[in-house]
Nucleic acid binder design. Structure first.
Length: 262
DNA sequence: ATGGTCGAAAGTCGA
């Protein structure tokens, strides 16, 4: 039996129950990893997930901003809630699958608009978040899967216009380098690109501000599914569910769906 | 160079 893991920046879980329902109706999701749930754990819409069979909930939320959650058909064991900025923001939750594999669900800070540490502290915080994750990841040897909104589109084919976005936060060389260090620290395999290699374009986010997101197609690949080297041969597929961007009241991100034989 | 759109929250900010 394949195991299906989906990851989605839902941009408020309370505002978008219909997106969760449509996703689960469209694909056989076993474990759903959400980012930007934007609610405290006490406000989390538990009944929605229980009704959909995703009754094992592991929450790391906060009021208003950020927040990550894992909803699963299969039991999971809690592992950690990391705070790489030591500022209380809820951005990283980890659980253990019955097979022993650890699943990390991460929401990397967006980093503000100006790609300069001095002019924009949020940009420095994003780079520091990645550096602290890199230290942790380099020391970790157990087989793991890491999913989430990493808020960086690393490859030229991950954005609609590489040259135009070189100074736009999410695609600047310094961010791409930082993400590269994180990836190299553990030998993480970028499964999105294992199954959809360049020069194919692959996006997971389209701005709300576009007049016609589909026609202009000015997307970026901000969302990722990575796995440890030991798990690469167990991975079977990764799909970016582009159609979800056209669903009613969508998130600006679409789900990534990975299957593994584990 | 600007604004375009969302959500949560209050009458603005972060994305």
């Amino acid at each position: 039996m394949p195991l299906t893991i989906a990851s989605l920046n839902i941009n408020s879980v309370r505002a978008r129950p219909h997106i969760v329902e449509q996703l689960v109706a469209a694909r056989p999701v076993d474990i759903l990893c959400l980012q930007e749930t934007k609610c405290a754990d006490a406000e989390f819409p538990r009944a929605l997930f229980e009704r959909l069979g995703l009754r094992h909930l592991h929450l790391h939320g906060q009021r208003m901003h950020h927040g990550v959650a894992i909803a699963s058909r299969v039991p999971l064991a809690p592992v950690a809630r990391h705070d790489w900025q030591a500022n209380g923001e809820a951005r990283h939750i980890a659980v253990r699958l019955q097979s022993g594999i650890v699943l990390h669900n991460v929401y990397v800070p967006a980093g503000g608009d100006i790609p300069d540490r001095e002019a924009n502290p949020k940009f420095g915080q994003k780079l520091d978040f990645l550096a602290r994750m890199t230290d942790w990841s380099g020391a970790s040897t157990e087989p793991a899967i890491l999913v989430g909104d990493l808020n960086i589109a690393p490859l030229p084919e991950d954005v609609w216009d590489h040259r135009a976005l070189l100074d736009v936060v999410s695609h600047t060389p310094v961010e791409v380098e930082a993400l590269g260090h994180l990836q190299a620290s553990h030998g993480w395999c970028d499964l999105g690109r294992r199954f959809v290699p360049p020069p194919q374009r692959l996006y997971s986010w389209w701005s709300y501000r576009a007049r016609d997101w589909d026609a202009s197609d000015r997307g970026r690949r901000l969302d990722h599914i990575w796995c440890s080297p030991a798990l690469v041969d167990s991975s079977r597929s990764v799909e970016t569910l582009r159609a979800a961007r056209g669903w009613p009241k969508p998130s600006d991100h679409v789900p990534l769906i990975a299957t593994f034989d584990l």
